[in-house]
Amino acid sequence: MKLEAVDYQSPTAAQDFVESLRQTGFGVLKNHPIAQRSVSDIYQNWEAFFNSPEKENFVYHKETQDGFFPKSVSEVAKGHKKKDIKEYYHYYPWGQCPEGLKQEIHAYYESSLALASELLNWIEAESPDSVSKHYREPLSNMIKDSGQTLLRILHYPPLVGDEEPDAIRAAAHEDINLITILPAANEPGLQVKLKDGSWLDVPSDFGYLIVNIGDMLQEASGHHFPSTTHRVINPQGTDTTKARISLPLFLHPRPDVVLSDKYTADSYLKERLRELGVV
């Protein structure tokens, strides 16, 4: 089995894309509206940022979680004990950002957000009536005016040999949010866990856009759409000297959005952040 890229411009794009999400929790789009040149420039400019001492001027605010997260405070995936081998920057339109990088990253944030809204409409339109009746409001409306949607600029540095045994770039985990939009990274390594427990490489062809289901959409859809386990494995051989940059946009509903009888978006997020040890 492999993940097939769906042509965004195909007349059956919505059906094919949502079917892929339903079967694997992941969908891959090609010929989509996100400009490859924009993504390439962001990778280059932010890699320079991560390799400079300037990043220390933007250390994250503990209360609002915006800014630079050094490797020393990297996440520990739920159910794991080793920190991921990564550092990252949390960009929110209202948060701190290096002045020279803000215009470019904000333009990307806005264009990706617009596409995400369209993809949520696809998901809702292709949901069976038995599933869509669970949605307390239109899916695309859940993210409207939300200050919680997060663009994370991830930097996986080259491996130097002093990493903790068994630590990898991103341990197996599920995302918390509704959906995540991710341009193919500048290096491979992303894998998705299949129903039989095996791991499948997610296509890393530059220009592809990868979308996956998060826990909140799984909850809101009554588990019709699976929040799929994924990870980023360490490179092998000469590739260990290469850094990896990726740009996941995590689509978060407004805190007041009702996901199910059990959770609002706010209560769900706080529960998961406590489990991760972030708050």
Results as ranks from 00 to 15, higher is better:
Y263K: 10
D145T: 10
A220C: 11
I153D: 12
L273K: 04
A171Q: 04
V258E: 02
S267R: 08
I143T: 13
H223W: 03
L217Y: 12
P248Y: 04
Y263D: 11
V211Y: 07
P183E: 08
R169E: 04
L159S: 13
E275R: 02
H173C: 02
P188E: 02
D215A: 11
L200T: 08
L178P: 01
A243Q: 02
A243E: 00
S198A: 14
G214W: 02
S260F: 08
E187D: 01
N234C: 00
L209I: 13
D175V: 01
D205S: 11
K193D: 15
R272Y: 06
A185I: 03
P253I: 00
Q218A: 06
P158L: 05
Y268T: 00
L251K: 11
E137N: 01
D196W: 09
A171L: 12
R274E: 04
L249Y: 01
L159Q: 15
P248E: 06
S221R: 07
D266M: 03
P188D: 13
D205R: 08
T241G: 05
P226W: 00
P255I: 01
T180Y: 05
Q148A: 13
S246Y: 03
S221K: 10
A185G: 12
K242H: 12
E271F: 01
I179E: 07
D239E: 07
